[in-house]
């Protein structure tokens, strides 16, 4: 799906006359330097094995939590089961803010804020996946995406009373006590992470169909209200 949407957007961009310039793709050599931040936990290349994190060979097109011999967080197991695959777009979103993208990831990395660094490291990782990079069916080395949440949205002050009412829709499945018997806890989330996650479902970046549906009809104020409520939930 990701490939397809990339192709479509590329075609659309071509039709609109905005050329796909070379600088939209990252530089693998520069990416190799950026990767030095990652290699303490992730090996890549010939003979790579799992360390603290899984090896990153053949990453493109792999479902999240897709290697059988690595023990992933619940969060990634769910994301994989919901259809998340690693492509340039999804890696870009994940690397920018790992915990917002997969709330329960054990990757203790704060995120790579610089867009060019992300493009470059993704281009570097792309060289360790099999599909030739220069044929249309293959994953692009990187696609420019803008999944940042508009700071205006993040700045909305939610009404916790409205949030409490709206939260009753959440607590049918997510336990107000924070318990997790198969559906993750959502209490005590930092407001920003909550807002980013909900918008990621609303924009269908995160895959889960129930959450896409629920978030899909919440407006920006309602998402802010929920975030304000869950941040302080104390029962």
């Amino acid at each position: 799906m990701m490939r397809y949407s990339w192709l479509l957007s590329t075609v659309a961009a071509a039709l609109l006359g905005s050329p796909a310039t070379a600088d939209e793709f990252g530089d693998p050599e520069a990416g190799a330097k950026v990767y030095s931040q990652c290699k303490g936990c992730h090996q890549v290349g010939a003979g790579a094995t799992h360390r603290i994190g899984p090896h990153l060979n053949g990453l493109f097109g792999r479902p999240a939590a897709g290697l059988e011999d690595f023990k992933y967080s619940k969060s990634f197991q769910r994301a994989g089961a919901s259809g998340l695959e690693w492509h340039a777009e999804t890696l870009d979103a994940f690397l920018e803010n790992p915990r917002s993208y997969a709330s329960g990831t054990r990757m203790s990395y704060r995120g790579l804020k610089d867009e060019t660094d992300r493009k470059n490291v993704i281009a570097y990782l792309r060289t360790f996946s099999d599909d030739p990079a220069n044929i249309p069916e293959a994953d692009p080395t990187a696609t420019p995406t803008d999944h940042d949440i508009d700071p205006v949205i993040l700045a909305i002050q939610g009404d916790p009373e409205y949030g409490e009412y709206l939260s009753s829709e959440c607590t049918t499945c997510h336990q107000a006590s924070g318990g997790d018997d198969g559906i993750p806890s959502i209490v005590y989330w930092p407001e920003d992470e909550f807002v980013v996650a909900m918008h990621a479902y609303k924009n269908k970046q995160r895959k889960h169909p129930v959450m896409q549906m629920i978030a899909g009809r919440l407006n920006e104020e309602e998402i802010a209200a929920l975030a304000a409520y869950f941040k302080n939930l104390d029962n």
Binding site: Q77, T171, T172, C173, A176, G179, D181, G182, I183
Partner: peptide
């Protein structure tokens, strides 16, 4: 995963 989710929902709704 869908089945496990239903187990989570059961705990959630009965508590709710």
């Amino acid at each position: 995963a869908t089945y496990q989710e239903s187990e989570g929902w059961y705990s959630g709704i009965t508590a709710d």
